[in-house]
């Protein structure tokens, strides 16, 4: 059995590993020092895990909207996305 059919490339491998590490890190952090839910600017009470998920997914929406609606470089969108994730993690 080979993995050839999955057509791995370096960028996607890095992307998947990064997400996996973020999730593992979050799990370990929460196991060592569980944190409580709180209300930020998001309309629902969230834990850091929720905020990571919301941040990641909404960053993806930002990338897609950028790609669909503008012709500007995607690197700008990437910066916006990272900034957004940080904002959600800190104040969401």
């Amino acid at each position: 059995m080979t993995l050839e059919w999955m057509y791995w490339t370096l960028p996607t491998a890095i992307f998947c590993i990064a997400i996996f590490l973020a999730l593992t890190g979050m799990t370990i952090w929460q196991t060592v020092s569980p944190s409580v839910e709180r209300r930020g600017f998001l309309p629902i009470p969230t834990t850091p895990g929720d905020r990571l998920f919301i941040g990641l997914v909404s960053a993806l929406y930002i990338q897609l909207a950028w790609l669909g609606l503008t012709d500007l470089s995607l690197w700008i969108a990437l910066l916006v996305g990272v900034g957004w994730i940080v904002a959600v993690m800190l104040w969401g």
């Binding site: 050839e4 059919w5 999955m6 057509y7 490339t9 960028p11 996607t12 992307f15 998947c16």
Partner: peptide
């Protein structure tokens, strides 16, 4: 994960793909 990989490449023939 496979779908993510496919979506970023042009698969010309089995085993031959272009990023």
């Amino acid at each position: 994960m496979t779908v993510i990989n496919y979506s970023l490449q042009d698969i010309l023939a089995p085993g031959k793909a272009l990023f």
